[in-house]
Design a protein around this nucleic acid. Structure first.
Lengths: 290, 290
DNA sequence: ACAATAGTGTCTCTTAGACACTATATG
DNA sequence: CATATAGTGTCTAAGAGACACTATTGT
């Protein structure tokens, strides 16, 4: 292929449109979700510079591409790695993304990262085209994030406080007074939350929100908080335990009971399945979108 | 905002990394699927120029971005529109994508288009970083496509002939002798086919493969061909009819019966639901990925 | 003792899947 | 008449949801 490099370049310049190569920037933006004090929260940073100076935005960063003239064998990050880098910069996590295309799940840091979708609104910024590849990250409770480059603050914000109104999958208003959102990030957050809600139905990812070992009640609380609806404790336990590969018992029990006492709960860790069969469906799925 | 343009530009250049802006190209590539002579087919074009000259590739095109110095109020295409444009160029379809972010479904041309995922393999081409935003298109049987710019041929290729072997969601080999695939397009096609298969479970999109009016048997054939497994005719019919909003009767009957006669089938058109409740699950979903 | 929770047992209702069966139209 | 298909009816097994019940332990 190296002997065809010149021809390859010409192909790029000639293909489709000779003016097809104005500057395009690609960013990886992360909808990082966690559960803090019984609320589903998203990681937001406050922008220090325009555009949207002072508004809140998703942590993200530009894809670090090869510079003109740089050797062609320079190792370059994938978009997945750029997303992991952006998240690590804000949370201090030593997370390395799986280099595979589908998803990244680092067992050590227990942060799950997967691509959400790509937002190609060229009107985002008046100066140049910015394509945003959005990711969803699910994490157990993490320490207070630190503001990084170009930001004055970084917080876990309860999504309830963002007051995002949706209709037919599209954000129609965003009334947040405390946290005005930059760009189209209200839409991205709404899509990311919906992805997380849907993921809990078909995958064992609820475990990504809790620690290494957890009780069935811990898992149920994750479902209840993310879905925003109460679940039947006994039926939930039966369903989780009857789904092959969802959890596996550790043989140990929780060290402490609840505030009012009660039996010690059995502890579990994540099983070996990637997909739940049968799925655990939300009652809200009844809303047949018509 | 226009008064902040200078500051905005500085923000872009200063944010995250001062060298963050080497040239990046964004392409929209389409996995266009249709059913021809009882086979699931994907639209491929043969590359006329390197890299991968002579190999087969997905139809696609570069995102047409704003050129430096161009007025900032120039209307620019979204990535969705770029994908629709790439598809229309090969199929001759006068298709206009929905400008919404989630999906595009043009009733007139009866082509459904939705974003698949973004592939950020910077090693794709030795000369520059190319980010590929892939789409899946579902279409009823279409005429023979025409080769366009930079291609010497365009065909509907049965995916069976591509002989793509998968393992844990990743393509591990691609043995196609007749259709060697360019770039990472084997992976993208595999992901697109899997998306289509999954979509049939939860959405009424099987109707996108057939004409405006169809019988239950037509719909069943779509499921059988896409999933590659036979379905129980009577149970399938009962399930489709009991799923609210999937199809609505037209009151008419098919003009002709089968080769061996039989009753005329009732005809239906697409209903008003966007999601099937309950879903129509494949038996292959039993394969709990573990 | 009381309150709250972990976990099991059991009942009912719905649905999936299998298959029998009738009606229809073409060679 | 033979044959294949459209569509309905029926039976069984499995799962969802509701709820009763026991066991446990901190206040």
């Amino acid at each position: 292929m190296t002997d065809k490099t010149q021809a390859a370049e010409q192909e790029f310049l000639a293909d489709y449109d000779p003016y097809a190569f104005p500057p395009v920037a690609v960013t990886a933006d992360v909808v990082a979700l966690t559960i803090r004090s019984n609320e589903l929260c998203v990681l937001l940073v406050r922008r220090a510079r325009p555009p949207y100076e002072g508004s809140w935005a998703l942590p993200g960063g530009f894809l670090s591409a090869r510079r003109p003239g740089e050797p062609t064998n320079t190792p370059l990050e994938t978009i997945d790695e750029a997303a992991a880098r952006a998240l690590a910069a804000k949370t201090g996590l030593t997370m390395s993304a799986d280099t595979q295309a589908v998803s990244a799940h680092n067992a050590a840091s227990r942060v799950y990262l997967e691509q959400l979708r790509t937002y190609g609104d060229q009107a985002r910024d008046p100066r140049m085209t910015v394509v945003s590849v959005a990711y969803v990250a699910l994490a157990p409770s993490l320490p207070k994030p630190t503001a990084g480059h170009g930001t004055t603050d970084a917080r876990w914000v309860p999504i309830r406080e963002l007051e995002i109104d949706r209709e037919e999958g599209r954000v129609i208003s965003q009334n947040a007074t405390a946290y005005p959102l930059a760009f189209d990030h209200a839409q991205i957050i709404a899509d990311g939350v919906e992805r997380a809600r849907a993921k809990l139905e078909y995958s064992p990812l609820a475990a990504a929100f809790v620690g290494e070992e957890f009780s069935i009640a811990d898992l149920r609380h994750v479902y209840e908080i993310v879905w925003g609806e109460p679940l039947h404790p006994s039926n939930f336990a039966r369903k989780v335990l009857s789904t092959p590969g969802f959890v596996e018992g550790t043989g140990t029990f929780s060290a402490e009971a609840g505030t009012f006492g009660g039996p010690r709960a059995k502890l579990y860790r994540t099983g070996d399945c990637a997909l739940l069969h049968p799925p655990i469906l939300r009652a809200a799925s009844e809303r047949k979108i018509r």
